[in-house]
Design a protein around this nucleic acid. Structure first.
Lengths: 146, 146
DNA sequence: GCTTGACCTCAAGTTAGCTTGAGGTTGCAT
DNA sequence: ATGCAACCTCAAGCTAACTTGAGGTCAAGC
């Protein structure tokens, strides 16, 4: 079990709980790197378990793979995150969570005001604020109102 | 502007802020219905502005189109939501929001405990609860880490 | 009668985060 | 030497909520 500490993909999958296909996908996206055996099979460092753990946790906190890659690539030498890296990153995640909670609480307040109103008017309903959605590129409804 | 109060799709789009393509998409999904002119053009009732407003608001509260359709189809005659319909639905949305806030707050607490720890251990990190994801298959230690 | 703009259908593309499948190779134990 | 599990690549599929594009029609003003 420790030929130079290199792990085959299945072992890494077993240790992280990820699917083998997911790890290959992450490699493809540049989130993780692998050595190859002469027979072209992937071999990972033990520290990659930690790197994947970081990915999983950051994901759980709502970061997308792109953002995670951005964080990871900020690390010198592409090393696995250290304590101070983690602190820096987790503090920025903390404010992201705060913001989400703030928005949801605001929505809940508006909803409470709205129950009993029932107007469903785009002009007047506090729940429906056009500024929240306008200008968001990509998917989702656009917004211009009378 | 009121030939029998029937609106062409562009007018409905203008009044709701939705893209024309989005309205056609909703029609296709059965969320809304249209009459047709002899020339095969869609004509909507004025009350469909309200119906679409309902869809937009419910969406903003986190419901998917499928769930929204389920709510709308509970209404007798497929009519546009009335005050009491709205109250019933909005109360169930209120608890969905409560639940979301609860989960986020929990995560934030765990994150606070975790800053300064930096272990990134799948075994110990409170942020990473394996029961959330791992398939239970397989015996032995699932997440063995450094 | 011609142009213009709003409308039509149907198919395919988009983003995210993977999974699934086909078809082929490697590595390790017996 | 053989069997078979684990590995490989590449392409396509999946969900959500739409958008975009191609190619064509309808309605109204000049």
């Amino acid at each position: 079990m420790d030929k130079n500490d290199l792990l085959p993909i299945g072992e890494l999958a077993r240790r992280t709980g990820l699917a083998v296909s997911a790890i290959r996908f992450y490699e493809d996206k540049g989130l993780i790197q692998a050595f190859r055996t002469m027979g072209n099979q992937r071999r990972f460092l033990r520290s990659d378990v930690r790197r994947l753990s970081f990915i999983l946790i950051a994901q759980k906190l709502g970061l997308g793979l792109t953002e995670i890659e951005a964080e990871l690539s900020k690390l010198p030498q592409g090393r696995t995150p250290s304590l101070s890296d983690w602190q820096r990153i987790s503090r920025s995640m903390r404010s992201a969570i705060d913001e989400k909670i703030r928005l949801l609480t605001l929505t809940r307040t508006k909803l409470d005001e709205c129950i009993g109103c029932g107007c469903l008017s785009l002009q007047r309903c506090a729940l429906y604020n056009r500024d929240d959605r306008a200008g968001t590129a990509g998917t989702g409804p656009r917004f211009v109102l009378d």
